[in-house]
Amino acid sequence: LPPMELSLPPLVQPSQSNQPFMSPEEFISRIMEAEPPEIYLMEDLKKPFTQASMMMSLTNLADKELVLMISWAKKIPGFVELSLADQIHLLKCCWLEILMLGLMWRSVDHPGKLIFSPDFKLSREEGQCVEGIMEIFDMLLAATSRFRELKLQREEYVCLKAMILLNSILCNDNCSTAAGLPKKNKLCKNLDSVIDALVWAISKLGLSTQQQTLRLGHLTMLLSHIRHVSNKGMDHLSTMKKKNVVLVYNLLLEMLDANTSSSS
């Protein structure tokens, strides 16, 4: 990153609708504190992997991560003020995107590798043993590589994660729902806070106004790629479950069922 020679104003001033909500600095501090701890797979990994053993390790880790994700989401400012139905809906839509963004963050300094956990690291080639997973590994590695190119900062990473969570369902200030307008306004305001925080984080990097604009665009454009790879991953996991390659249970089963055609 260029040296911070100039103190340039942020690209966009914090939105007025958020006054007197929380400053972007405070918001980022809160979501940084919400970050889940590092977890370990804690399995005796026998290599070479078989299709079943790799899928089992991946799903075991995912199930552990999901539990921590719920605790993380509850610490995102404004999340628990949403209705329980909205909280459930948001988490069920975005859980795999959140897991994948976390994976990309852990892997950003390890080109060609996916760091699922400190004790579970896979190279691209190790995905050969699972039918259809190499395509997904390639997409994950490509997105990770992009974050590496952009030199993604921790403050930006936590903002993107919060953005994925709150952006899982479309918020619309003008829609009227059965529960009334205030519910949707709350979600919109929370999302505005995340945008303000991300803009603030970018403004600290000493970039020109144009570079700040581009960076905001580059980071948010990656969210659609994350959504795409999450959809692919969801289909893949569903296929593996239907073929009985892997037993999916507990919280992971609930979250997977919400995204498959068999769900009500």
Binding site: V67, I70, S71, K74, L84, Q87, I88, L91, K92, N250, L251, E254, M255
Partner: peptide, 13 residues
């Protein structure tokens, strides 16, 4: 939604 609901509605330790 049993497990998800349980995690959302229990207080953090």
């Amino acid at each position: 939604n049993t497990k998800l609901l349980q995690l959302l509605t229990t207080k953090p330790e």
